[in-house]
Design a protein around this nucleic acid. Sequence first.
DNA 1: GCAAACTCGGACTAATTGAGTCCTATATCC
DNA 2: GGATATAGGACTCAATTAGTCCGAGTTTGC
Lengths: 165, 165
Amino acid sequence: MWKLSRKSEYALMVVQRLGALGPSEQLPASVLADDGDLPRDLTAKILQELRQAGIVQSSRGVAGGYRLVRPLDSVAFLDVVRPFEEHLGLADCVDGDGGCKRAEGCTLQGPVARLNHWLMGHLRGLSMAEFVGPGRGLGLTVDMPQPSTGRVSSDRLGSVRRNAL
Amino acid sequence: MWKLSRKSEYALMVVQRLGALGPSEQLPASVLADDGDLPRDLTAKILQELRQAGIVQSSRGVAGGYRLVRPLDSVAFLDVVRPFEEHLGLADCVDGDGGCKRAEGCTLQGPVARLNHWLMGHLRGLSMAEFVGPGRGLGLTVDMPQPSTGRVSSDRLGSVRRNAL
DNA sequence: GCAAACTCGGACTAATTGAGTCCTATATCC
DNA sequence: GGATATAGGACTCAATTAGTCCGAGTTTGC
Ligand code: FES
Ligand code: FES
């Protein structure tokens, strides 16, 4: 569950880098790759997909390269990541495509869909400018107070916490 | 990114089922599997892991079986899912274990860690009782108003939306 | 004590997904 | 026309996930 694929990480790096460029500047894939120490071919591929997703523009030829279509604060985190995440939903069932044989009578579909919807909404609302901004720029922790009803008190959950950060 | 593993789905089902039981009731793995139409052996495995995580208790022998340690509203969604998600962090870098060679100067580590932390916090605060409750019981959409500063207006994000629900 | 019903837990295999490479075609600038 | 780019598909290899199998340990009832 929700490790970003490495492609997504690369995409985030690249988008961030491009966001720092001046309005008429652009960079070729090779430079973006080398600067970030990323595999060249893979970076090229990623940029292609970002282009198809409408995040970056490209120009070919000798002095070609990539640049952002919109500034960083108009690019949603979710959109940068979406092309590289095969299963963006929380579970397959959520698609509704009748994929799941036990769909009828399933007591999980609803809750999963709700949670998924909530998550997606927030990631769609998170701009790259915010995401990448240093310090408290994220705003997430500020804008969203801890809910109070019926919650688990976190101190009684003393389990592993390996990767929980 | 964040498809739940199938094991997690199964775990959620099983926990939900056990939560509906009376205080002194319990069910063997075989029944839980058959009722939910899940693979028997795998269900048994999942229950073992849930036991190690402190979610369920088991008793062996003839009339043995599994039951919840705590009631549904004291079990965090995150805890049910955690044992089955290898990479719970948003990205490997986040662990900090020096795993990443480009850690120094990385402009992604901070933002990813922040976002990850935020997500984990909310999933830890979501009890199974809430999660699974029908209708608007989730409370997530109620308690958390949409932030307003610097956000992307969602109507200009007209891309794929395949799995976005 | 013994058999039946059940959990425990590791080892193993198969299937899916992810990461990364390679190669060819096409466009642009000088 | 040659150098430098992107475009995009096909392909391989590695990692993870899903699922199976089997032997061992436990409790209950007879
Ligand atoms: S709809 Fe697939 S398991 Fe619920
Ligand atoms: S720390 Fe690993 S890429 Fe940033």
